[in-house]
Amino acid sequence: MGFKLLSKLLVYLTASIMAIASPLAFSVDSSGEYPTVSEIPVGEVRLYQIADGVWSHIATQSFDGAVYPSNGLIVRDGDELLLIDTAWGAKNTAALLAEIEKQIGLPVTRAVSTHFHDDRVGGVDVLRAAGVATYASPSTRRLAEVEGNEIPTHSLEGLSSSGDAVRFGPVELFYPGAAHSTDNLIVYVPSASVLYGGCAIYELSRTSAGNVADADLAEWPTSIERIQQHYPEAQFVIPGHGLPGGLDLLKHTTNVVKAHTNRSVVE
């Protein structure tokens, strides 16, 4: 069995187990497998329904001669939608809004960016022009300005110390501490036991640490421990890039980060 097929099978099995364990909360999309990078042309966006009122959005972007996937989250909030992270750029984010209108038909009224990198804030200006209120932590807003990236308009308070959590509509926002970046936030959907790890969490097929220019490698494993301790009931975990899975993604990420750190020390 090929690795790609095995990865998709694991996603399907995880979703099936969740649907059985929580039949009222989960209505997993039966329309197909989780979209992969090879299936999404740059400039297009796919939506994948995880649970009743919960979707991931998947886009792709060219970077350094390669094409990478990027995940975000959409959560229903009454007759409105909360968006977590842009679709990595203005063109993708405009396509995301169009796809949401086509498939869901509810307005996106608020959006949260989970850290300051372009795959999370690139497209904020498109959201703002569409009347979406954009939010991020003060740290993310400051770092985005320093980096020359787009800056969300509103500040999220109460997320300055490791372990801080605040309720934001249908989700809980959690600051686990520094990891992929010093400002990275985690998003949890309690009604569906869905954990969105953003770039602080890796997919299972990833074996290298990737972009760690703004990471705190020493603190990252401790931050992941905080996530595990705060959300032990999480059933569906979405990484910032690639295929979702279960809580095993947290341990896998820790292993990859520690291996990278150990290699760096040896070198």
Rank of each mutant, 00 (worst) to 15 (best):
T109K: 14
S31D: 10
Q235E: 12
E233W: 09
F26P: 11
L81N: 02
Y188K: 01
L247E: 09
G197E: 03
S22K: 14
G210F: 03
G148N: 10
L159P: 06
N92W: 04
V257Q: 03
I224C: 03
F174D: 01
N149L: 14
E225T: 10
Y34W: 15
H57P: 03
N255P: 06
Y175N: 06
I201M: 07
Y12A: 13
E99H: 14
A130C: 04
E233V: 11
A15P: 14
S181C: 03
G53S: 10
L159Q: 01
S56V: 15
A218S: 12
P176E: 01
P170K: 05
V67G: 13
I17D: 06
Y68R: 03
A15N: 14
L82F: 06
D29V: 10
Y12N: 12
A95S: 11
V126A: 08
A165G: 11
T14E: 07
L73Y: 01
V54W: 03
L249Y: 04
L73P: 05
A144H: 04
G246Y: 04
R110G: 07
S16G: 14
Y48M: 15
G105M: 08
R141K: 13
P176R: 01
V67A: 15
T60W: 07
T182L: 14
G169S: 05
E225M: 12
L243K: 15
E147T: 15
L10N: 15
L185M: 06
D52K: 11
L127R: 01
T93W: 00
I238P: 03
T261H: 15
T114H: 00
Y175G: 00
T134A: 04
V132Y: 00
I100V: 10
I20Y: 09
G246R: 08
L247D: 08
T153I: 11
S16I: 11
V256I: 13
E219T: 09
L96W: 00
V42I: 08
A66G: 15
Q49D: 10
E267T: 06
A87E: 00
S181Y: 05
D216H: 08
A15L: 12
G246T: 12
N255M: 10
Y202D: 06
G43L: 04
R167H: 11
A87Y: 00
S27W: 12
S137H: 09
A111F: 07
H241F: 02
S264A: 12
A19N: 15
G197K: 03
L247F: 11
L156P: 06
S31T: 12
V266G: 13
N184L: 00
S191E: 14
S56M: 15
L24Y: 15
N149G: 11
H260M: 07
G245N: 02
A59F: 04
R110Y: 14
S223Y: 03
I20Q: 11
E101F: 06
P232Q: 09
D52E: 13
V256Y: 02
N255Q: 10
V112C: 04
R167M: 12
S181P: 03
K251S: 12
D29C: 07
I40E: 07
G72N: 04
Q103S: 14
K258S: 14
V237C: 05
I104D: 00
S30R: 13
G53I: 08
E219I: 10
T153H: 13
S193M: 14
A51I: 06
L249W: 03
R167K: 12
S193C: 05
L9G: 12
D64G: 13
T36C: 07
L10Y: 15
S208N: 14
Y48H: 14
A259Y: 08
G123V: 03
S113E: 01
E219V: 07
S7F: 10
S113T: 07
V67W: 14
T182I: 11
L13N: 08
A218E: 13
Q49P: 14
T222V: 12
I238R: 02
S7R: 09
G148W: 04
I104F: 07
E147V: 15
S16R: 15
G246M: 04
L143C: 05
D85L: 00
A165L: 15
A87P: 04
N92D: 02
T86A: 07
Q61I: 06
H230N: 13
V28E: 09
V124I: 10
S27C: 12
V75G: 02
G32F: 15
D248Q: 12
G2Y: 15
P176L: 03
A98H: 14
S191W: 15
L143Q: 09
I58Y: 06
L47V: 12
N211V: 10
E203W: 03
I224E: 03
Y202E: 04
T114M: 05
G78A: 09
A178P: 14
S16K: 07
R141I: 12
G240F: 03
A19Y: 15
G197D: 05
T60V: 15
Q61W: 06
L249F: 06
P190T: 08
I100S: 03
G43F: 05
G148D: 07
S22N: 11
L82Y: 06
P152L: 02
D216P: 04
G53Y: 07
P190E: 12
L97G: 00
Y202S: 06
Y175V: 02
R46H: 09
K4M: 10
V266Q: 14
V112Q: 03
T253I: 06
I74F: 04
V212Q: 12
H241S: 01
A144D: 04
I84G: 00
V132A: 06
T182W: 13
L127F: 06
E80C: 06
N262T: 12
E267V: 05
G123N: 05
V124L: 09
V42P: 14
G177C: 04
Y196Q: 00
L81W: 01
L6D: 13
E172S: 04
K8P: 05
A136C: 06
V187Y: 01
H154F: 13
S137W: 04
E145V: 09
H57W: 02
I224S: 02
S62T: 07
A218I: 11
V67P: 15
K251I: 12
V112A: 06
Q235A: 10
S139R: 12
V257F: 05
Y68V: 11
P69E: 15
V212M: 09
Y12V: 10
S56C: 15
S191K: 12
D77Y: 06
R120G: 04
V45C: 04
A66M: 12
P244G: 04
Y68C: 05
T134R: 01
T261L: 13
E33A: 10
A133M: 13
V126K: 06
G123T: 05
L83D: 01
D183I: 03
T207D: 15
V42C: 07
H154S: 09
V42R: 09
W88A: 05
D119M: 01
I238M: 07
E39N: 12
E147W: 15
H260I: 09
S137A: 08
P138L: 09
I74R: 03
Y68E: 08
P190R: 11
T109I: 10
G240V: 04
C199E: 02
R120D: 04
S223R: 03
P244K: 03
G53A: 08
A15H: 15
R128F: 09
I40Y: 05
K251F: 09
P152W: 01
V37D: 14
L47P: 07
V126L: 10
T114A: 02
A66S: 14
Y34N: 07
H57Y: 07
M1Q: 05
H230M: 14
G240L: 01
D79Y: 09
S162V: 10
I100P: 00
G105Q: 11
G148E: 07
D119R: 02
I238G: 02
A133V: 13
P35D: 07
S162W: 09
W88G: 02
L81H: 02
D125R: 08
D164E: 10
D79W: 08
V37S: 15
P152M: 03
T182A: 13
A209E: 07
T254M: 13
Y188Q: 01
R76T: 08
Y196S: 02
R141Q: 12
Q103H: 15
G245I: 01
N211D: 08
T253P: 01
F116C: 05
D118W: 06
A136Y: 01
P41Y: 06
T36H: 10
I227T: 09
L24F: 13
E219D: 08
T86W: 00
G131L: 05
V266L: 14
A192M: 08
G53K: 08
